[in-house]
Amino acid sequence: MSIVVNIFSSIGKSTLFFFQSIGKIIYFFLLSVNWSFRRPFYFKQINKQILDIGFYSLPVVGLTTFFSGMVLALQTYSGFENFNNENTVAKIVLTSILRELGPVLAGLMVAGRVGAKMAAEIATMRVSNQIDALETLATRPIQYLIVPRFLASIMCVPILVLIGNIIGVFGGFVVASFKLDFSPTLYIVSTLNHINLMDIAQGLVKALIFGIIISIISCYFGYNANGGAEGVGRATTISVVTSSVLILTSTYFITAIFI
């Protein structure tokens, strides 16, 4: 009897905790949006984050999208006999990258690279009283720490995705012309023919939402960390896992809206 009660009570507790956390994260998001429009603006912090999130993520995003474009071309060609012509391969590579692979890969890479860093930095500041110190030094932690990361993320992730898209499509082109012996000109013409603004828009909407997810989730768990070095580790892990899961699930719902 008591075991049953215990099971139900612990299920109840974790459900409650889950919905509480969702509420708190949404509140944290609204808080960040609200403070984004208020003085003072910490431009130096924003620039630093843009450099960190945008510029230094380029190599990983470029590398992953490049290889994805290549493998996509190869798989399409070898997997579907009727599709092994320039037109179809170009179309499939382009569409998959613009709509899905570009944003999701860039999102996951940024979540792993930048999200982890954001969570760890902010959690460290929390457990070493630096956030308390900010408050005593006439600085709102949300404005000084969270807003710059939030703004930089929503600016940089879409740009990273655009660049990743181009690199990914180029990866497909490289395989098509050098490995599959397609006509490079024909492949390029086919690619250009299939460029669709709605596909690009879908990718960018995803990128924007991923940018929000990564920055808000990482900052939230960092900001609410406790318990020394272990707490920092916990915040980092849970940020990366949560952002990645949210990226992979939200992409489905955004796609469903677009189709």
Partner: peptide
């Protein structure tokens, strides 16, 4: 109210990303 206070935390709580002088004149 906090503007009236100068606080030193037990562990120092200096800002890692700022140099010593930037820390000191922060406020």
């Amino acid at each position: 109210i906090l503007l009236d206070f100068g606080v030193t935390f037990q562990n120092g709580a200096l800002f890692d990303s700022l140099s010593v002088w930037e820390n000191i004149v922060f406020r």
